[in-house]
Structures are given as C-alpha cells and as structure tokens.
C-alpha cells in the first residue's frame, strides 16, 4: 500500500463529509431548478416522494414499526383532492384538509386496534388496507372513474394565484420538503422522538419505564399517515391527473427502496434516498432494455457498500480511513 498522508481524519473534514449527501442532493435540485429540462419533472416527483418517505421514516425509522400500506393514505387524500376540486369546485387547500381528515380517520381505524397488539398485526392490516383502497379506486367508478382516472385537476394555488410553471412547482415542493424535513428533525429531537426510539429499541423496556408504547406507536402512525396524505394530494395537483396505478403497490416498494438507500431512521435519509432513487433510472436511460438491470445492479452495490444508507456515508469514509490507517 502506498503511503497516505491522510492517516488521521480531521474532524472538520468528517463533518464536511456528513453534509456531503445534503450538498449533493441539493446540488441536483438546484441544477434542476436553474437548468430545467425534464430533470425538473423527475425532481418534482422525487420531492413528492421525499414527503411520503419522511412520513414512513417517522413510523419505521423512529418508531421501529412496519407498514406496507401507506400508499392507502396517499390514495385517500389524493383522490379526495382530485374529486373535490374537479367535481365540487373546492380550492386545493380545503380539499386537502378533507383528504387529510379522511386519511387520518382511516389510519386511526386501522391503527387503534392493531397497534395495541405486539407483532405483525399492523403490518398485515396495512397491507390489506393498501389493497382495499386500490380496489375501491378501481371499482367505485362514479367517484374515481376507475382506471380512466380523474383528469383536469387544477394546479396548486396560494391565495388565488395558481402555480402552473414547472419551476414554480419545484420551488413550492422544495419549500414543502424543507418544512417536512424540519418537522421530522423536530420530532426526532423531541421527547416524543426519544420515546419513539425507546419503543423501537425494546417495547417492553419502554413500557416498564412508563412509556405508553401503544399510544406512541399510534401517534407515530398518524403522523406518518399525514405525511403520506400530503404527498398523495401534492401528486394529483402537480400532475393534474390521478388513476389507481399511481398509488399501487409499486409506490410502497419504491418508498422502501428510498428509505433504505437513503438511510432509515436518519433525518437526511428520505431526501437523499428519494433523490438518488429517482435519478438512478434516468442515469441508465440510454441503456434502453438494460435500464432495469443497471438500476438493480446499482441498488445492490449501494446496499452492499452503504448498508446503513447513503446519508451515513461519512461513517463509511471514517471506516475506510481507519482501515487504511491499520493497513499502512
């Protein structure tokens, strides 16, 4: 091995590396904003997913629970937004309010009985609710139009001003994502967040310390359902169209991938993961038929070399540096 001048890793550099995932993801965002092109579209979807995955992270990363059905809450809110704005002339915000209420009621009905039980009851129940909501979206054609979908959904508007340009939408979504990440950070650093990590660590130990596990799990579930609902409504306003496939099981698979690639339980994880996972397929687009293959291979490499997620990449460098130091 050649002599390396960086045997010791200064703390400053390490902290710099910790910010690297943020910088990289923010750089892509800025590029999309200033240069435009279809990257704007890709990033808009990525940001919507950041909101969704941030919610999932609160429930799965912070509270250590599993849900396969958060797509249901996105669908409930998204369809409510779509239906109320197109058929009843609602403005986007009150329509979202109704969608949020519906998603939260549904989350409460599913979560309240199942989260009192230990084990995988909730995971099973969420899987079921995801499938049921999908079926309802397909079959209840008088409201949802089935597979035809609802089109002509107005764009997001604030105080009568509609955001129609893609750049404007991207800016708006950036603000939403910043707020969502801030909320996620505040949750993690709060008493509530600590209680969630305790429940994630050991439910019995947490309860023996007086932490009401079922109440906190339910609160985390509701909070994450609210994020999912927000993402669901954002989607319909950004695209202007909704059909059942939008909130299919692939949404769950994609969100899980983003969460694990970005780093579950971390604050930057959802942002980094969603941006990377949204960009990867585009990087391989010129591979045509091999696009999926290259994407899959890249995923495997990411999970092998950054098993705790890309947002923990600085610890990866630290380990490499430590190894180097040992070798030389």
């Amino acid at each position: 091995m050649t002599k390396s001048p960086t045997i010791t890793f200064p703390d400053m550099t390490r902290r710099g590396l910790g910010a690297l995932p943020w910088i990289a993801a923010a750089g892509v965002l800025a590029y999309a904003f200033f240069v435009g092109g279809y990257l704007t579209t890709v990033m808009s979807f990525a940001l919507i997913y950041v909101v969704f995955v941030t919610g999932l992270n609160v429930f799965m990363g912070y509270a250590g629970q599993v849900s396969f059905g958060h797509n249901a809450f996105a669908a409930l809110s998204g369809y409510t937004s779509a239906y109320l704005t197109t058929s009843h002339g609602f403005a986007p915000l009150p329509a979202f309010g109704a969608g949020l209420a519906l998603a939260l009621s549904c989350a409460l009905i599913v979560g309240y009985p199942t989260l009192r039980l230990k084990g995988h009851y909730l995971a099973m129940a969420t899987l079921a609710i995801g499938l049921i909501v999908y079926e309802v979206a397909v079959e209840w054609t008088s409201v949802t139009q089935g597979y035809m979908g609802i089109s002509g959904i107005p764009p997001i508007g604030i105080a009568g001003y509609e955001i129609t340009s893609e750049r404007g939408q991207l800016a708006f979504l950036t603000v939403i994502v910043a707020l969502a990440t801030l909320v996620s950070w505040r949750i993690r650093e709060s008493r509530f967040g600590r209680a969630l990590s305790a429940v994630a660590g050991s439910e019995d130990a947490a309860r023996a310390l007086g932490i009401s596990a079922s109440r906190y799990k339910l609160s985390a579930f509701l909070a994450s359902a609210a994020f999912a609902a927000l993402a669901g409504s954002l989607f319909v306003h950004v695209v202007g169209f909704v059909s059942p496939e939008v909130y299919g099981l692939h949404m769950v698979v994609l969100a899980f991938t983003m969460l694990y690639v970005g780093g579950i339980g971390t604050i930057a994880g959802p942002f980094v993961g969603a941006v990377i996972i949204s960009l990867l397929p585009e990087m391989f687009r010129q591979f045509k038929d091999y696009q999926d293959l290259a994407y899959g291979a890249a995923l495997i490499l990411l999970l092998i070399y950054a098993p705790r997620g890309l947002s923990t990449i600085s610890s990866l460098f630290r380990r490499a540096a430590a190894k180097k130091a040992v070798v030389s």
């Binding site: 600590r194 990590s197 660590g201 050991s202 019995d204 947490a206 023996a208 310390l209 932490i211």
Partner: peptide, 21 residues
C-alpha cells in the same frame, strides 16, 4: 427486564433521560 433492555443505538445520557421520562 431480563437482557437489560437498554436502548443500544442511543447514548448513555439518552438512556438515562428516558429513565426519567
């Protein structure tokens, strides 16, 4: 509890903090 039930990923200070929850 048996097996101690400490919260491994958290710091000692955070564990103690949760004790005084």
């Amino acid at each position: 509890p048996e097996g101690r039930g400490i919260f491994g990923p958290m710091s000692v200070a955070e564990n103690l903090e949760l004790g005084a929850y």
